[in-house]
Amino acid sequence: MTKILVTGAAGQLGRAVLQHLLQTYAIAPADLVAASRNPVSLADLSAQGIEIRSADFDDENGLVEAFSGVDRLLIISTNELATPGKRLIQHKAAVFAAKKAGVRHVVYTSMPNPDKSLVTFAPDHLGTEEAIKASGLSYTILRNAWYHDNYLMGMPHNLQAGKWYTATGTGRIATISRDDCARAAAAVLADPPIGNRTFTLTGDESLTAEDIAARASAATAKPLDVVHVDGDQLAQGLAGAGLPDFVVKMLVSADANVQAGNFDIVTKDFETLTDVQPQTLADFFDARKANLAG
């Protein structure tokens, strides 16, 4: 029996990975472990027969206990973004704990080209990848592109206003749905590739802001004009909307990364791992018309 543990199981990605393991890849619930800082929130998974464990990334000794007896481990990057450097410390603790616990194979959710990315949290991913490689653990690194789902945060407001202020310039970005990333992670956990591998998960098209706006408009029948601004102007607008400083910096850096061409990556890695095509942004928007309409 192979024991598979998913960290961050209370989050959207973690839950989706577990459901794909159960439904898409027919892994028995008894072979799965769902781990979270708040295991009480996983009662519904326990009811499905999945083992529940507490996993606090600020407690390395506790992580060793949580990872005990686990063959394959998915480390989902934490959401600790407000304090620079803290997330990398957490991730390194998880890697060290996996080594101490005797985990046979680690899967980690990273981001495209963390070595040259302008996104504020890229050093966290690069440092984690380096820690995994230095540990001697068998690994698969999944570099997840920007999610389609991220547009659901700001796009409804943009569509209401009829304008989308962006600092991406003429840059292009190939996004992918969170659920597709979850499916790929489940595929790797169910049957890890031979050797240490790194995959970049993207959609099958790289789009400009105008392309993305056109797809949002088509899904909602609402006009949306793209207004190009520079990074300072975007930061002022986001700060004026009341967003926390670290979020403002993250969003501005993401636009800068698009403009620099660092998100302009299209691969077939998702199809290689899952044998299916990724959901297009147009289809994603069409399935979420009500969310986009706000």
Results as ranks from 00 to 15, higher is better:
Met1Ile: 09
Thr2Ser: 14
Thr2Asp: 14
Leu5Ile: 05
Thr7Arg: 12
Gly14Met: 08
Arg15Asp: 01
Val17Glu: 10
Gln19Cys: 07
His20Leu: 14
Leu22Ile: 13
Tyr25Glu: 07
Ala30Ile: 00
Asp31Gly: 10
Leu32Ala: 14
Val33Asp: 06
Ser36Glu: 05
Leu42Tyr: 08
Ala43Gly: 07
Gly49Arg: 15
Asp59Thr: 00
Leu63Glu: 02
Glu65Lys: 15
Ala66Ile: 07
Phe67Pro: 15
Phe67Tyr: 15
Phe67Lys: 01
Ile76Met: 02
Thr78Ser: 15
Thr78Cys: 13
Asn79Glu: 11
Lys86Glu: 02
Arg87Thr: 10
Lys92Asp: 00
Ala94Val: 04
Ala97Thr: 01
Lys99His: 06
Lys99Ser: 13
Lys100Trp: 00
Gly102Cys: 01
Arg104Leu: 10
Arg104Gly: 12
Val107Ile: 15
Tyr108Phe: 15
Ser110Ile: 11
Pro112Leu: 06
Pro114Met: 11
Leu118Ala: 05
Val119Trp: 02
Pro123Ile: 01
Asp124Phe: 04
His125Val: 13
Ile132His: 11
Ser135Met: 07
Leu142Gln: 12
Arg143Ile: 03
Tyr147Thr: 02
Asp149Gly: 06
Leu152Thr: 08
Leu152Tyr: 05
Met155Glu: 04
Pro156Arg: 05
His157Glu: 03
Leu159Cys: 04
Leu159Ala: 10
Thr166Ala: 09
Ser177Lys: 07
Asp180His: 12
Ala182Tyr: 12
Ala184Tyr: 09
Ala186Phe: 10
Ala186Tyr: 02
Leu189Lys: 14
Leu189Glu: 09
Pro193Thr: 06
Pro193Ile: 05
Phe199Trp: 14
Thr200Gly: 02
Leu207Gln: 12
Thr208Glu: 08
Ala209Arg: 04
Ala213Tyr: 08
Pro223Thr: 05
Leu224Tyr: 02
Asp225Asn: 01
Asp225Cys: 05
Gly240Val: 01
Gly240Thr: 11
Ala241Val: 06
Phe246Asn: 00
Phe246Gly: 01
Lys249Leu: 00
Lys249Tyr: 03
Val252Gln: 06
Val252Lys: 09
Ala254Phe: 06
Asp255Cys: 14
Asp255Ile: 07
Gln259Phe: 05
Ala260Met: 10
Asn262Asp: 15
Asp264Arg: 09
Val266Lys: 13
Ala282Ile: 03
Asp283Val: 04
Phe284Cys: 07
Ala287Tyr: 03
Arg288Gln: 08
Lys289Ile: 13
Asn291Val: 02
Ala293Cys: 04
